[in-house]
Write a protein that binds this DNA or RNA. Structure first.
Lengths: 195, 195
DNA sequence: TGGTACCAAGCAAGCGTTCGGTCAAGGGCG
DNA sequence: CGCCCTTGACCGAACGCTTGCTTGGTACCA
């Protein structure tokens, strides 16, 4: 089972273990002793690989946000059609969110903790770019007549962005497949629930 | 300013102060010393009024859930029409949520902490009843032809319930009025964003 | 022999909570 | 009226425990 470990790949393994715990309990609520337990070592030994608990969180969050930003940029680059771009953003975001469940829980539970620290200033920066992308897409959609003209873009953006990473925090995601969730989300988003 | 305090009304005042902190930082992240500071007393003195920090949380959560349940029951009692009932639920929930902002933050941030304890078993009970109400309304709406027949009721319920208490956690709610949010929410919900 | 990976032990700070004591307000009583 | 004695609200200090993190040492592999 415990096959030979590569040089610095062991570090990535520890990050993954920590991420699993962060995804379930959040960052602050997870102790370094729990992370060490999951790895089968003592808590002090973690500090051979990381200089702080925050560093682990940093690694998880920055990796996530990089992927998310890449998805957004790719979507607006690939197509001029707002509706298609939004659909692609929803798909790439959903994929990223399920690959980085820990990051989402951390952003939701410990946003106050992270966003205050200078080290995590990139959190706000990235959010700004995401917001800008959404607003431009929604505005363009209104101009082309695809979206309702009475749409409050900023309000709609806030709703959509948050709605988008709601399902990821559902623990019993075994109930629905990713495709099911995406389809339900897109239909609700574009058409509402009315017949 | 500090007018004479009534007998046990001082206790309610402390609960309100604690609630303001819980609404901003969550339950676990708020310390009893911070609560005491806000009240201008020492942390130990809090235990003259409450037997534990959890008791304060209990008071806030149960009061909130009582109001929410009352709103749901009233909505389904007042009208047989699913669409009208849902609209009324959205309005009553929004009102309750803005009156009990602390409870929502606690449910979102510290759900794991509370839901595990027997003392807070009523959390799960209430959620069950809310879920049941939504599902029955959505099913009835499908049968009457008001809602799309291909709606996955359970998935839609999950989305709607969570979407409903999203805007409350937005700190800068000064940007939009409550009515604006409700309108945007209802339009998105029933009609989607498409023209 | 030198470096990597870990252990064993412990530190300071912070947590929720407890406890003995103080002190002003106020009702009963002579 | 003047005295006593209860009571509620709070202080000051500490308790036991958990937190993230540090330190000194050691086994092992190249």
């Amino acid at each position: 089972m415990t096959q030979s470990k590569s040089p610095s790949e062991r570090r990535a393994h520890l990050v993954r273990l920590a991420g699993d715990l962060f995804a379930e309990k959040g960052f602050r609520a997870t102790t370094v002793r729990e992370i060490a337990d999951a790895a089968g070592i003592l808590s002090g030994s973690l500090y051979h690989h990381f200089d702080s608990k925050e560093s682990i969180g940093d690694e998880i969050l920055s990796a996530f946000l990089e992927d998310v930003l890449a998805g957004y940029r790719e979507a607006v680059r690939d197509t001029p059609d707002p509706r298609t771009a939004i659909e692609q953003i929803v798909r790439s975001s959903t994929a990223n969110l399920s690959r980085h469940r820990a990051a989402l829980t951390m952003l939701q539970n410990d946003w106050n903790y992270f966003s205050g620290q200078p080290r995590f200033a990139y959190l706000r920066t990235t959010m700004k770019e995401i917001e800008q992308t959404w607003i431009e897409l929604l505005e363009r959609g209104k101009q082309t007549g695809q979206f309702r003209a009475d749409l409050d873009t900023r309000l709609t953006y806030r709703l959509l962005r948050d709605i988008l990473w709601l399902p990821t925090s559902w623990r019993s995601s075994a109930t629905w497949s990713t495709d099911q969730i995406i389809d339900g989300l897109l239909r609700l988003l574009f058409d509402g629930i009315r017949a």
